Simulated assay, not measured.
Amino acid sequence: MIVDLPETTVSAVAKTLVKVREEGGAVALGRVLTLIIATRAEVMEEAIDAANDASREHPMRVIVVTTAPDADPRLDAQIRVGGDAGASEVIVLAASGAAASNEESLVTGLLLPDAPVVVWWPDNPPTAPAESPLGRIAQRRITDASTLPQDVDRVALLGPSYSPGDTDLAWTRLTHWREQLAAVLDQPPYESITAVEVQGADDSPSTGLLAAWLKLKLDCDVTWHYQPRDSWGEGIKSVRLTRASGDIVLERPEPGIAVLTQPGQPDHELLLPRRTVRECLAEELRRLDADVLYGRVISDGWAQLGPAATAQR
């Protein structure tokens, strides 16, 4: 069910939501959190689709906020429940002019009572998410350094602006890479890693984050650089771990497939596709406490990586 509310108020939206639930039999019981999506109209539906998919694992209320401060003052809203919202209730708020001046006041009356609040910026996040109007009311704040503004140097800005509760989907995309590498190092021979090389696409912030994680965990020389666009399309290309008995290489010869090469063992082919936004969002919603390791990687790990390991374009 979709209910459009043109030129409305937040109070009217809240009353209509209660009415829709009562008439349609939908209830808010079982909703575990409120997810606020602060986005642009151009990417709004894609973000809603990702949230709806994640809501099958995490039933929630989704509040989508788009703003146009320079337009005429008004608030348009839309309520989606039932099949049009997956396992969620979706409230879309399009605020313009003076109505867009205070994002916090737009959502405060629509939050689920006594439930955690998560804010997600699919692109163009504030410089310091925790200090933004929406970030101040949230337990978790999700950004994505791989989206607009398109600049891999954004990774360097994650540490200075970090507050407990912040995370970035460029980090979440590394989960399977980190699992595979950790599994390899848990097997004999238990030799120290003396050097690491990480390669990835020229627009992949995850490349630098993986290098910073390896630097933090292995405390050895780590180099990283980007593959030209015409040789590798997206994401991480390869990781090479050097130790006395020979190199361990985890490399994707093509997107989605990785080959693990180890001394004295046959090569292993692994499924290692680039993770979707839906998968990453669902993973981040599984934990509402601060990701301490992420905080250490973007601060200590990145600092230890040092300016000598900057990208070679």
Rank of each mutant, 00 (worst) to 15 (best):
V198P: 01
H225F: 09
A201S: 15
P253V: 06
G233Y: 10
T276H: 11
V277H: 08
T276G: 12
Q262R: 15
L210P: 02
Q187Y: 07
L250Y: 00
E251Y: 02
P263Y: 15
L260A: 08
E279M: 12
V297D: 01
H176N: 10
D267N: 14
Q227V: 13
I236H: 02
L218R: 05
L218W: 08
L185S: 07
E179R: 14
W232Y: 06
S299K: 15
D219H: 13
G295K: 02
Q227I: 13
L218P: 08
T242A: 13
T175L: 11
C280L: 05
V297H: 02
D230Y: 10
C280P: 01
Q265W: 15
L214S: 02
R286A: 09
I236R: 00
D202C: 14
Q187H: 12
L285I: 11
D219F: 08
V249M: 09
P255R: 08
L272R: 05
A195L: 04
Q187G: 05
P205A: 11
D247I: 08
E234N: 07
D219P: 04
T175W: 10
S192Q: 14
R278N: 05
T194E: 15
I248M: 09
S204N: 12
L270W: 12
L210D: 04
Q187S: 13
Q262F: 04
A183Y: 07
S192E: 15
A183H: 11
S231A: 12
G295L: 10
W224F: 12
A201N: 07
I193W: 03
I257K: 14
Y226M: 03
L210I: 06
L216Q: 10
P263R: 15
E251G: 04
I257A: 01
P255W: 11
K215S: 09
G235C: 12
L210T: 00
T276F: 07
E279N: 10
L241S: 01
R275N: 00
P255K: 06
A195M: 12
S245W: 09
L174K: 02
A244V: 10
W224L: 13
A195N: 10
T175E: 02
P266H: 13
G200T: 07
A212V: 07
D219Y: 01
S299T: 15
G200N: 05
L270M: 13
A258R: 03
R178N: 03
L288E: 06
H176Y: 10
Y226T: 04
V259T: 08
L270P: 07
H268D: 12
Q265A: 15
I257C: 06
D267I: 03
L181G: 03
T207D: 02
A201W: 04
L214W: 05
T207Y: 03
E234S: 13
I236L: 13
L285Y: 05
E283D: 11
D247T: 01
P189E: 10
R286Y: 00
V184S: 03
Y294A: 05
R252S: 07
A244D: 14
H176A: 06
V184Q: 11
V239N: 01
P263W: 14
S245G: 01
Q199K: 11
T261R: 15
Q180N: 10
L210F: 09
R275F: 00
I236K: 01
Q187C: 05
R274F: 08
K215F: 07
E179D: 12
K237I: 00
L210G: 00
